[in-house]
Design a protein around this nucleic acid. Structure first.
Length: 575
DNA sequence: GCCGTTTTCGGCCCGACTGTTTTCAGTCG
């Protein structure tokens, strides 16, 4: 059992305990332990004894003993009992908005309901009305929530949420009553998928602004409409919270509602230790009701003895310690990008020619491009035959002669065949400046087989870069089973670059692994995986996710100059 | 169940909103 599996096991116990009506702080202890385990910066192999685990934050003797049992036996008597006692449908019911552990418990105990289907039926039969603390509204909302769950998974791709947030922000900013508006929450932190949109506003006329918000054309229905907080659902299905705060409160509210929750908890704990209370309204000296007068997030961090932490890093992944020591990274920005790799042209399944991509890239101020069409096994994508490769190379040679101050690298996205070999013989692979290797078939191998397959391909002397390393399609397809730690280790060993595929449905390598890759000295390439000119814009998302993974310009292949890139490629292929 | 410079008991981040009540429980972020 690895970290992730152990963490979700503990997480599940926490949920089951809640459903059983346990002391909430006890439940929380299991949650906190899960968080600690999941974000551990090393694997579990070094942990042999109770003491090893009990040294960790939020894990005491009791939990350490249980964790050891879980690792040794794959399960826990407590878990078995909980599973036996608590129907699995109750866990599903928690996903309904407005249904927490208490209400789920009530419908289970009083009505014997153990599944979403039964709950829906009970709502339609008006049976929730009889329950203590339930009424017409809760019954209606439960029904709506069930329908919503059926329709969407309740999470949204970052780029779609970003677009909606920008539109709302722009429109509301036009109101003369609005002094300041910002998007907070997980969008500001650049999470790859988000649950909702959080907007913050300062205004002297909250009622007017709230009315404008709830009647915006994107709004489908109003969930809550208050003085300081309103919530709506947009036609695209996402919920939006709007909060009104005073000008003085704004930086504190922005910090608070940007999160993450884990980051906030640590900040609050830190404030407490320094004799302060920190909340969304201010930073207060203990016993005082008047907040320190701080004008920006920068000043709040400074007051707590920290340098400014960019929103993307606020995930309690060591950023607070780094801010304390002044060792936060100087994060990469869009302006740092000087070129772009992983581009598909009309030769395979792209919608633009090399010439068109080159012209577009030059206009965007880029200095180079790396073309990489699909390889011959990718029949579905019109993969390139040897003849087509040679023709493409002649075209690139001619373009490179005619283009001034711009360079096109010859590349290919070679399928990693099931046995770990690449898609062309040695002499063909040797013709490319760079070779991206990607898995496009046989996703259902075992973890061991898949890891072996990819590492074998990485060991090929012609391999330059690993493409979309986990194969995930966000909200659609799980990542294939693969030991990412081992892949990163192999990349470090063979000098292989790992792609951060910036396509909004991929955003793969996952940011949680990017930092680990950097720590091992692996270079990251922010690649649009462009199939059309407009896809080149994905680089913006890619930069956001790279920042989330602690990338500085020096960590990013395509922030280097064309001549440096040539040197880097040369070094990879001769080592 | 964890934790400790207010330490071995008694807290645990904390405030807004809804819907149910008639002062508050539950949920959410």
């Amino acid at each position: 059992m690895d970290k992730k599996e152990l963490a979700s096991f503990l997480e599940e116990i926490a949920t089951l305990l809640e459903l059983q009506g346990e002391n909430p702080f006890k439940c929380n202890a299991y949650r906190a332990a899960a968080q600690t385990i999941e974000t551990l910066d090393r694997n579990l192999e070094g942990f042999q004894t109770v003491e090893d685990f009990a040294r960790l934050k939020g894990i005491g003797k009791s939990l350490a003993e249980k964790i050891l049992v879980i690792l040794q036996t794959g399960t826990l008597p407590l878990y078995q009992e909980l599973k036996q006692r608590i129907p699995s449908g109750l866990v599903e019911m928690l996903r309904i908005a407005g249904m927490g552990p208490k209400r789920v418990r009530t419908v289970y105990e009083k009505l014997g309901i153990i599944s979403l289907g039964e709950l829906e039926y009970a709502c339609r039969e008006n049976r929730l009305l009889e329950l203590p603390g339930f009424g017409v509204k809760i019954q209606e909302n439960t029904l709506k929530g069930i329908e919503y769950l059926k329709k969407a998974q309740g999470r949204f791709h970052l780029h779609k949420a970003l677009a909606a947030a920008h539109r709302l922000q722009e429109d509301l900013a036009k109101l003369p009553q609005v002094d300041r508006i910002e998007t907070a929450g997980s969008i500001r932190r650049f999470k790859e998928t988000v649950k909702d949109i959080d907007l913050l506003i300062t205004t002297a006329k909250p009622a007017t602004v709230m009315n404008a918000f709830t009647s915006h054309p994107l709004v489908e229905s109003i969930i809550a409409h208050g003085e300081t907080k309103s919530s709506v659902r947009l036609t695209m299905g996402i919920n939006v919270d709007l909060r009104v705060v005073t000008k003085k409160e704004f930086p504190f509210a922005l910090l608070y509602f940007t999160g993450s929750r884990e980051h906030n908890i640590v900040l609050r704990g830190r404030a407490q230790k320094q004799g302060y209370k920190l909340n969304e309204y201010g930073l207060f000296k203990r016993q005082s009701t008047k907040s320190l007068d701080l004008k920006s997030e920068e000043e709040i961090y400074k007051a707590l003895g920290l340098s400014y932490i960019p929103p993307e890093l606020r995930e309690d992944q060591g950023e607070i310690q780094a801010a304390e020591q002044g060792s936060l990274p100087q994060l990469v920005t869009l302006k740092d990008l000087r070129g772009s790799f992983h581009i598909h042209t009309t030769s395979s399944d792209g919608a633009a020619t090399i010439k068109e991509f080159a012209a577009y890239a030059q206009k965007q101020g880029l200095e180079y491009l790396g073309i990489s069409d699909h390889s011959r096994s990718a029949f579905y994508a019109n993969g390139l035959s040897t003849e087509k490769i040679l023709k493409q190379h002649r075209e690139i040679d001619a373009l490179n002669k005619s283009l001034k101050g711009f360079h096109i690298f010859k590349g290919i996205e070679s399928d990693i065949l099931p046995d770990g070999s690449l898609d062309y013989p040695e002499d063909i692979l040797a013709l490319f400046d760079f070779v991206i290797i990607s898995v496009h078939s046989k996703f259902k191998m075992t973890k061991e087989e898949m890891t072996k397959r990819i590492i074998k391909a990485m060991e090929n002397p012609h391999t330059t870069m690993l493409g979309h390393p986990t194969g995930r399609l966000l909200l659609a397809r799980e990542a294939y089973e693969v030991d990412m730690e081992a892949i990163i280790q192999a990349a470090a060993q063979h000098g292989i670059i790992i792609e951060l595929n910036a396509n909004p449905f991929r955003l793969d390598l996952d940011w949680r692994y990017i930092k680990k890759a950097l720590d091992k000295g692996v270079l990251i390439s922010i690649n649009p995986d462009a199939h059309s000119l407009k896809d080149m814009k994905f680089a913006e998302l890619g930069v956001g996710l790279a920042r989330k993974g602690w990338c500085e310009p020096r960590h990013v292949l395509n922030s280097h100059s064309a001549s440096d890139v040539k040197k880097i490629f040369g070094k990879i292929h001769t080592s």
